[in-house]
Computed example of a mutant assay.
Amino acid sequence: MNIRLQLFELEDQRWFPHVIRQGMLDFLRFMITRLNAYEAALPLLQELLERSGQRHITDLCSGAGGGIAAIQQQLGQRLHRPVTVTLSDLYPNLGAYKYLQESSGGAINFIPEPVNATAVPASIKGVRTIFSSFHHFPPHLAKAILQDAASKQAAIGIFEGARKSWLELLLLWLLFPLVILLVTPFIRPFRLSRLFFTYLLPLIPLGILWDGTVSLLRIYTPAQLQRMASEAQAPNYTWRSGRAGTGPGKNVIYLIGYPEEVKR
């Protein structure tokens, strides 16, 4: 699937009810965590941390923090030392962030104020990451995110948990309605609103199916990511894109960027 359509996702809309957005993001976090969907990204993240001499990740566009707990733990194991993570978003999901902070013993923290990925304050340090969110941005904003990282000489890793295929789209419509109904009672933190808007008034499942479809159509291919990155103006900065991982739920499209010499 090489096409990219800039359609709209419900969760991007300011008018979209926060309780529904939150329920959709909680489901995404649950599935990414259970599938360990970003396992293939670990060597790339390790490379970024080692190249930058850092042990801290600042996650942009965190949503509900899907998969970040497993990533934080597994990176620590690979590097044989603790790795910390700061979550951030333009619309912070504070309930999910507090849950992750408590369950991680403080290894994962968060910024409660909105953070714009196209203009990250200089005071925010660490290797930048964006998981399952870069496709939300049209090309001009996507380029601005890359330019902001390159201009500030910050290493960045962009990861989309998909291969971008028609088979994935088919599985979304055939399997996900059943999966949503089965797993919703097990998603934490528990919320009555999530049950209501899943089983009685199924706005969360409908939102997941719509946004999931649009997400697959909006994801940038590795070639498109590389072209955008090549337009970022910054000296001594390297970009690399591609696909990693095999098997259902294990495919990752990625773009990583890092300064060749990092000021420490």
Rank of each mutant, 00 (worst) to 15 (best):
I3R: 08
D12V: 06
V19D: 00
L28K: 09
R29M: 04
A41P: 13
L49G: 12
G63I: 08
A64P: 07
A69N: 06
I71D: 03
H80Q: 14
H80I: 11
P82C: 08
T84D: 06
L87C: 05
S88F: 14
S88A: 15
L94K: 09
K98W: 09
L100F: 02
S103M: 13
G105R: 04
N109C: 14
P112N: 02
V115H: 01
P121Q: 02
V127Q: 03
I130W: 00
S132Y: 15
S133G: 14
S133C: 11
F134Y: 13
P138E: 00
H140G: 00
L141R: 14
A142H: 06
A142F: 01
A150S: 11
A150G: 04
I156Q: 07
G157Q: 05
R163E: 12
K164P: 04
L182E: 02
R188A: 15
F196Y: 08
F196N: 02
D211M: 05
G212R: 05
V214I: 13
R218T: 03
I219S: 07
P222A: 11
A223R: 13
L225N: 05
R227G: 00
M228E: 06
A229F: 10
A229P: 13
W239V: 00
G245A: 10
P248V: 14
P248I: 15
P248A: 09
Y254C: 03
L255Q: 03
Y258L: 01
Y258E: 02
E260G: 05
E261D: 07
K263V: 09
